[in-house]
Amino acid sequence: MRIKKLNIGILLFVLVGVVPFAAAFIYALLYSFGIIGVANDGFTLQFWESVITSGTFFKSFGYSFLIALVAVAISVGGALWITLKFRQQLETRFMSFIIYLPLAVPGIVTGFFTFQLFSKGGFFARISHKLGFITEASQFPDLVNDGLAIGIIFSFLTMITPFFVLLFLNVYKNERVEELSILAQSLGANANQISRRVFLPILLKKTWVLIVLYFIFLLGAYEVPLILGQESPQMLSVLIIQEIKQYDLDKISEGYVVAVLYTLIVSVAAILLFLPKRKRAYAT
């Protein structure tokens, strides 16, 4: 009876958690090979060849990879520094509420706010005009929809740095880093050695899975690059949706090729992250 009940649970899990993902992947795969689709008439490698030779996917993937890497590296570095320097101050009642506030802001609002601040008619452009740095809006530097993705990276930083600060503060407390630091100090370690040999290794070891996971989330981010990105290259999700929504029917199949490649990369990352038997990293 117990086994039967467990099986119903597993059946429901497969139905809700596995079937939609499998169906979506198979559909995209079949579409990418021309087996299904309005204008497609049978198996072809044409769309795959087109995507690979044009380099659209690789350009977009490299662009997304770099943006996500820069954003994660800066925010993890910044959050580690804040945790190290301001831990005690952040534990006060007022600060412990304030530091949570950025988590209440969704990506689309962050994108909108960044646009309002940094666009050519935005807040900083007005201030620059008032201070006499520029005389017309077009003289203001490109900080949104720009090639260096400054706007996107700024948004990502404001979105994930507070999260990492809170995460590191939690780990610091739960892993008793304070006590270990005192122990290291009593054994003769200086502040620098404590940071490098105790603080950093413990915090990074306990949170690296989440750091990688956030990198993957940023790789597939949609709202922020949709508002703040440029025409080309685009971040992966924006490129996929743009291609799939095209009126050019060939482009739709090419969009599904990119979607399949992206899904494969993310799935391999999930396998590497979560399949190996390891000691539980940071969890709730």
Binding site: G17, A24, S237, A259, Y262
Partner: peptide, 17 residues
């Protein structure tokens, strides 16, 4: 692991497929 696949895929791409 199977639960992680749909979880880490960008929702917009998932929806498109």
């Amino acid at each position: 692991l199977l639960a992680y696949f749909p979880y880490i895929l960008a929702p917009v791409v998932f929806a498109a497929c």
